[in-house]
Every structure is written in structure tokens, then in C-alpha cells.
Simulated assay, not measured.
Amino acid sequence: MKISIARGELLDALSTVSRGLSSRTTLPILSGIHVSTHGEDALFQATDLEVSVKTSCKARVEDAGQTVLPGKLLTDIVRSLPEAAITIASDVSGTANITCGQSSFTMKTLPPDDYPKFPEVTPNERVSLPTEEFSHVVHQVSRSVSRDETRPILTGILVVVEDGTLRMVATDSYRLCIKEAAVSGVSGGIELVVPGKAMEDVAKLVGSAEAVSIGVSENQVVFTFGNTTFISRRIEGTFPNYRQLLPKELVTRAVVDRTEFLEAVKRVSLMAQHNSPIRIRVNAGNHTLTLSAASQDIGEASEDIQVTPEGEDIEIAFSHAYLLDGVAVAEGDTIALETTSPLKPGVIKSADKDDFTYLLMPVRIG
């Protein structure tokens, strides 16, 4: 096989498929990127048997064929080369030459016949979202995905499509995030749990593609965008019933300028060290919300913000990190903080829309 590709396009393709590279030393073939030719295109693919990624780019194909090259090494080499055409030439003896200008590299290849076949998945249902909207929704909910592998279902994002609405939900059992977006062209309902890491990877890779298509099969989910196909296994199991966690009643609601609230939380958080919580006190009579934090042997901080309150005075405390995440990903110029009691979850919403909800568990005030 012998192909020549512009360095920028080659690096983009390698960076994309690298998301599927495996670090398992027990199967060395999975640390490689499969390179092949198809007409005037070069095809690249990688898999760790959980995730499979395939993409293509235009190339000058002098000799058709296929090979498997060490993925990380190849990517590092291409990244180090100047902006010019890069030639990859492999032979049957198990070596490949990478040349660009005056630079030349020789590396051992892996047998392409040993490389796993790319999964052929026929989706039962498919839904499409504009790229920017998809990335935005994933960015909002992914912060609430659990990193604890002992509860695999919580390491995923629940994706539900019904009645023209796509809903993504994530929780780590300390906070819960729900975000909705309008979709069209879906005949039936969709409900599945997708690994959070896979969703984040796709959101980072979509780049200049116009839209992201999500296809669902019995045990896999297929994302297609531009020239790229990204396949991940679904997470089996039952996602927690998030609806029953949402408060049914409302005792206090405070509408606040989002940027002002975010900056105040950042400042007061400087004194919320060693997992100290941030206390929030809403004084309906004075139209103020007071943020305060104290760490033993360090000091304390407090700040007052003007709010538009409804209901009763209340004092509640939250993890400063979780509160900061929620305010950071909320939408709109103003947001609403809703509470029912100091021992029940608080909710952050957009003040004028119902498509975003961030629920967080309170910290008991000592």
C-alpha cells in the first residue's frame, strides 16, 4: 500500500480514530490503527471492542492495500511533521515507511488480517441533531455523569426521544441534570443509556459537521457525522427513576442574575475548603440571597446578591463544587433557585424556560 495525504487532514483523521484505541497490552493488535484504501479515499479505523471509530479522507492512492500501524506512535509522528504531504508506504515484509519532506521514519506493522472487522450495525431508529446543539446538550449533562465504575449504569447518559423531544439525563446520585431539545423525523420512541465517555468523545469530534445522527440497535448506538462513524455499546440495566426525584412542591424560589451568581459562588468557594459546603440564605423580605462558607483554621467569606424572591425565607447548604457546576452549565441571563426544605434537593433552572433542570442534594447544616 502507498498513499499520500495532506498532513492536516491525516492528523484530523488519526486524532478522530484514536478515541477508539485500546490500552490493553493483552491484545497488541488493538493498539494499532487499521489503514486501508477505498477508491480515492484512505480509510482509518480503531477499536477497543467497546468503541469502534471509522473515518476517511481524500488521498493520492498510488498502490491500494491495507496495513495496521502503531496508533499512538503514528499520531505522534504526524503531529511532529511540518505542514506538507505525508506518504505512507507499507510492504508485505511487515514494515512501513512514513516520509514527509526530508523526514523519514520506518516502523513495524501489525498483520491486518488479525484486526477485528468493523461492526455492521443496522439501526432500528435514528434521530438527528444539529452539531452545535448536540455538543451543547452533552456539555451540560456530562458533568453529572458518575465516574464510579462500581455502578456502571450511572456512568452513562440516559437518552430518551418521545413526542418530538430529545431528553438527556445524567446523575451521580449527588446531583441530577436534565436537558431537552426539539427533534423531528422520529417515528417511534427511543430510550437507551449511552456511556458518558462515548458521548463526550463524539461531542469533541463533531467539528465542522452539520449534524450528528444517532442510530439505535439492540445493544449498540451508532453516531454518524461528516465522514466519521462512531459505534459504542449500550449500557445494560435500568436507569434510576429521575422523575420521582424532582420536587412536587415549592416553598422558596429566588430568581438571580446568572453571571453575578456564578462569580459570587466562585469567590465564596475560595473559603469552602476540605469539602466545606456553601450556605445559601434567602431573605424574602430584603430581596437578598446570602452566600457564605467557612473552613476551620482558614477563615470565612460571605456575599449578598439581590434576587427576586417568592415564598418563605430558607437556609440550605450545598457542595460548592456541585453548585458551581450547576450554575456554570445553566442557560439564560437569569436562573431560578428553587427549594422546599433544608433537607430536600434544591433545583437550578432557567428562569424563563423549562428545558433545563439541575437538581442537587443538600448538605446537612451542623
Rank of each mutant, 00 (worst) to 15 (best):
M1L: 14
I3C: 01
I3F: 09
A6H: 08
D12K: 04
L14M: 03
R19D: 13
R19F: 13
L27E: 08
L30G: 11
L30V: 11
I33D: 05
I33E: 06
H34R: 07
H34L: 13
S36P: 10
S36K: 03
T37V: 12
T37S: 03
G39R: 00
E40K: 02
A42S: 12
T47L: 07
V51K: 04
R60V: 13
Q66P: 01
G71C: 06
L81D: 09
P82L: 05
P82G: 08
A84R: 05
T87P: 00
I88V: 14
A89F: 03
A89G: 01
A89R: 12
G94L: 12
Q102L: 05
S103H: 07
T109M: 08
P112Q: 02
E120W: 01
V121M: 01
V127M: 00
L129T: 09
P130T: 07
E133I: 10
S135I: 04
V137N: 09
V137T: 01
H139C: 04
H139E: 15
H139G: 14
S142G: 02
R143A: 08
R143P: 03
S146F: 07
P152Q: 02
I153N: 02
T155I: 01
L158E: 14
M168C: 13
M168H: 05
Y174K: 09
A182V: 15
G185F: 06
V186C: 09
I190H: 00
L192K: 08
A198Q: 00
A198D: 11
V202L: 03
V202P: 11
V202Y: 01
V206P: 05
V206N: 03
A211W: 06
I214A: 01
I214H: 04
G215Y: 04
S217K: 03
E218L: 03
Q220I: 07
Q220S: 09
V222K: 02
T224Q: 12
T228A: 09
T229V: 15
I231A: 05
R233L: 15
R233I: 12
I235V: 15
G237T: 06
T238P: 04
T238N: 08
F239S: 12
Y242E: 13
R243S: 15
Q244L: 11
K248I: 11
E249H: 09
T252K: 00
R253T: 13
V255F: 09
V256A: 11
T259A: 13
E260L: 12
L262S: 10
R267L: 15
V268C: 03
L270G: 08
A272M: 09
A272T: 07
A272N: 04
R281N: 14
N283S: 14
G285M: 06
H287D: 14
T290F: 01
S292C: 07
A293E: 06
S295F: 00
S295E: 01
I298Q: 02
V307D: 12
D313F: 06
D313S: 02
I314C: 12
E315T: 15
E315N: 07
I316T: 09
I316W: 00
A317T: 07
S319H: 05
S319I: 10
A321R: 10
L323W: 10
L324P: 11
T334L: 10
T334W: 11
I335D: 05
A336E: 15
E338N: 01
P342L: 04
P342M: 07
L343K: 00
V347L: 14
A351S: 12
K353L: 13
Y358C: 03
M361N: 07
